[in-house]
């Protein structure tokens, strides 16, 4: 088929294996019936099935829910994504738009969803190399020299990550603390510390390791954390909504530090 024939075909057909609503009767969800096969499953199990096409044990779904709960549900409006929701609340914008905008903002480069994707790619690349310590350190140094960062390592604002011990305890309970990719994260941390680099793993490195151990691709892992921030976002919106309008951390004119061109006149 040439592009024009494909356009003509897809103008009338949308073949899919993802699912379909049969009006008034049922919903097919991939290979399953939504009502018959997922009546007693968690929403997280359904999400994983929807994203990956693989059915996971309820314990795995529960573990992913713990990741969402522990790692991404900070109801603090100073955090950049949550602050968007608080700003929406203070100007009385609708909650749906606040959540949508803050969720879009959560797909950030220095925090949020994108580091999970890059962290998984990075750990998978390191794991594939099967290098000894010396070669691995050389690889890390080279990466640091070229990109000035290692995905999943370091953290804006502070260097400690309070989520890690809690997360590792969850992994321990699930019997997943000593897996290949978790061991790799610990090994990288040790190598960086041994040569005096103050770069520590953040929670993303451990989450990325978990996702790789569960067999997720980077794209799947990224999709599975996109909605994880909503339990932090909504309280920030409501917090601003219950106060007087326009009162969320207002800025006075002297908060602007202007460093641009001096005052000038229009002369045309």
């Amino acid at each position: 088929m040439n592009p024009r024939e494909r356009l003509a075909y897809f103008a009338r057909h949308w073949p899919t294996d993802k699912g379909v609503w049969i009006p008034g009767r049922a919903v097919r969800y991939r290979e399953r019936s939504l009502f018959d096969d997922f009546g007693d499953r968690s929403w997280m199990a359904l999400l994983i099935y929807g994203v990956t096409g693989r059915e996971v044990p309820e314990a795995t779904a529960r573990l992913l829910e713990r990741v969402w709960l522990l790692c991404a549900s900070y109801p603090d409006p100073r955090l950049w994504n949550n602050r968007v929701a608080a700003l929406a609340g203070t100007v009385r914008a609708p909650a749906s738009l606040a959540v949508a905008a803050a969720t879009a903002v959560s797909d950030a480069e220095v925090y949020g969803a994108r580091p999970v994707h890059r962290g998984m790619q990075f750990l998978a690349e390191v794991a594939d190399r099967r290098a000894d310590d010396r070669a691995l350190l050389a690889f890390l140094r080279d990466r640091l020299r070229r990109e000035r960062a290692l995905p999943g390592f370091g953290r804006p604002v502070i260097s400690e990550d309070e989520r890690i011990p809690v997360f590792l305890a969850e992994l321990d309970r699930a019997g997943l603390e000593e897996t290949d990719h978790q061991r790799l994260v610990v090994r990288i941390r040790r190598l960086l510390a041994d040569c005096g680099l103050r770069l520590k793993p953040n929670i993303v490195a451990h989450v990325a390791a978990l996702f790789l151990d569960l067999g997720f691709t980077p794209q799947e892992g990224y999709c599975l954390v996109l909605l994880a921030f909503s339990a932090g976002i909504l309280p920030c919106y409501l917090d601003a909504l219950e106060k007087e309008e326009g009162m969320f951390l207002p800025l006075s004119c002297d908060c602007i530090r202007y460093v641009g061109k001096p005052p000038r006149e229009w002369s045309r």
Partner: peptide, 27 residues
Amino acid sequence: TITTRLWHEEAEEDNPFVARRCRLAGY
């Protein structure tokens, strides 16, 4: 503070939260 090359404001004398004059790149 927010650092910017683009936007400058002078406040009204009686309210620091209201701008009297706004300048864009100096204009």
